[in-house]
Design a protein around this nucleic acid. Structure first.
Lengths: 337, 337
DNA sequence: TTGAAAGCGCTAACAC
DNA sequence: GTGTTAGCGCTTTCAA
């Protein structure tokens, strides 16, 4: 309950024999209407270093115009033991922002807090990750804060970084078609989720199949079915020789379902998935995957946000990043070729 | 850059026609030296509700004695795309604290920030997750803050929740021994990490083998070797018929190594691992695992911390939670039985 | 080139 | 019962 003993700006001021204002101005490198004698600056910097002084970024935000704080929104829990690529994006993002002199602040975590509510302290911008729809970020959008959505639909006034699931799906279908497959199924996740990739990939599949003159295998739009049922229906009832899975987790279940059904992968049926995360490459057979550009998403998000905060009048940009086909063991020509 | 428009306590005060203090006292349910007319209380609550007022928890911590904030320390990045169980612990912890009226606050994230530095705003307690050693939490320990370490060694003045790797390892060896195995290897992770489980499990393995009169298979203490090399050496050079893996990730690589070496699991070699996380149960073969009590760790951590904060003179407690054997397909009697 | 003082949102000690 | 005021750590006017 005791006050954390980290040094305050007053202590630095005392130690260096100047006022708090001067300390603040020196440490923040103020140029406007301000200059210091070199000796003073050095004394201040020395005192700060000796005390290991670090300003409290949130207190600073009480009064400062610019805070160098970027809020990371959308983190309402720590994951469910199932990890997605978004962590990789968040890491890349953090490092990029840091390089530009910003810090990332994560909202206080509480089940009661709305997921994308702008923070209650002042920040220079916000990143909304994995928002399901545009409505979810309504409050953020109306706050006037500059923001970017990452891997979710953009809001009216924000920039966005998304992933080109359309092209990715087309490339996936193309890959399988080139191998000789003519009956290609799509496996939605076993469990509902609200992320828009759920619809995006499903619809992209239907479109891509249509484009190349193949019929979508029934069941592709059926949610809540087990991987086992999806695979059995696709292969046994509809003659599918390949399955594109919504993500790696469902693909792993498909591999197991195949084993149970005495189907060899890829000999009897090819399996591939979106999102190339561990352990995709280590499975037997290793999984062909449409890799998502996780790190690039983070970097782009940081870049787009900085554009906005540093040039407030610029129009928010929308970037769509390509996915990348990683061919491994789980896809091969169909049995009858 | 514009100030987020979230309402301040002054606005609530204006709207309800009372002073800020009264608003504060009503909303914080003060009892000591304070009572309100019911009409006033209702007006305040109504105004707060209408404005959707939420106090800024960090600003509150500037002056409040008690903040109802618990700091979560140790989160320096968002993960590496590889799942861990600690997220499950953190979730359980958050919900438990929330139920008791606390909120969790995550430090501002920055690569420059020391991992376990106590926050620079006032909190009622702290949780340090996955600390590697006691030294890492030195600053925290000296701060006088009440804290718990979760899944890491305790500090001199803090409570701790750990996992009984010793008993777990013994149970793993017992399981395999009961199946008939006499030559049981241990596979350390491919990549170095600093977490103390690295030594704990390795040493526990050596001890457990010793206790039942079996010889530890050489290589168990060799870090940085690939799963493939570990398995080949254990099976080919030393006749191992079973391998206990440090975690699920290395176990998955062992499965692949086995396939490459034309070893069937579990027919030729049994594989099991610590940490039962997805996709352990979905692999082919599904992995026998020593499950870690992730959620319980979180709950216990919250409980131990609350004990400390609510009864500051009580001695910090140390809880060690049991692991649980989950038998699946990847372990079976050795080939020659 | 620097300091004093006000103020950010909130709580707590002290009035009345 | 309720208001007034000081102060938490920091930045930013305004003065000098």
């Amino acid at each position: 309950m005791s006050r954390p003993s980290s040094p305050s700006i007053s202590q630095v001021a005392n130690r260096s024999g100047v006022s708090k204002s001067t300390v603040s101005r020196v440490l923040n490198n103020h140029q406007h209407n301000f200059s210091v004698k070199d000796a003073t600056r050095r004394r201040v910097l020395a005192a700060a270093a000796e005390l290991n002084y670090r300003p409290n970024p949130i207190v600073r935000s009480l009064s400062a115009k610019r805070t160098n704080l970027i809020a990371l929104l959308g983190l309402t829990d720590f994951g469910s033991g199932i990890r997605g690529g978004i962590e990789l994006a968040a890491n890349a993002l953090m490092h990029r922002l840091y390089a530009d002199g910003y810090e990332l602040c994560v909202n206080v975590l509480s089940p009661r807090e709305p997921a994308f509510a702008p923070p209650r302290w002042r920040v220079d911008g916000a990143i909304a990750i994995n928002n399901h729809d545009a409505q979810q970020i309504d409050a953020l959008d109306r706050s006037g804060l500059k923001y970017v959505t990452v891997n979710g639909p953009p809001g009216p006034h924000g920039a966005s970084v998304t992933v080109d699931d359309d092209a990715g799906t087309r490339a996936a279908v193309h890959h399988l078609r080139t191998l000789g497959h003519r009956c290609i199924a799509y496996a939605p996740p076993e469990e509902y989720n609200l992320h828009d990739s759920l619809h995006r990939r499903r619809d992209a599949y239907a479109r891509a199949m249509d484009e190349v003159g193949l019929a979508a295998v029934p069941g592709y739009d059926q949610l809540g079915r087990s991987a086992f049922d999806t695979l059995r229906s696709a292969v046994r009832d509809h003659g599918a020789t390949a399955v594109i899975a919504y993500h790696d987790q469902i693909a792993i279940k498909l591999l197991r379902a195949a084993a149970t059904l005495n189907l060899r992968v890829p000999h009897d049926v090819s399996v591939m998935c979106f999102n190339d995360l561990p352990p995709c490459g280590d499975l037997v057979p290793s999984l062909t995957a449409m890799a998502l550009p996780n790190e690039q998403m983070g970097e782009q998000a940081a870049a787009l946000l900085l554009e906005q905060t540093e040039n407030p009048s610029s129009d928010p940009r929308h970037v769509k990043l390509p996915e990348r086909l990683v061919i491994r063991e789980s896809t091969a020509p169909p049995p009858n070729v």
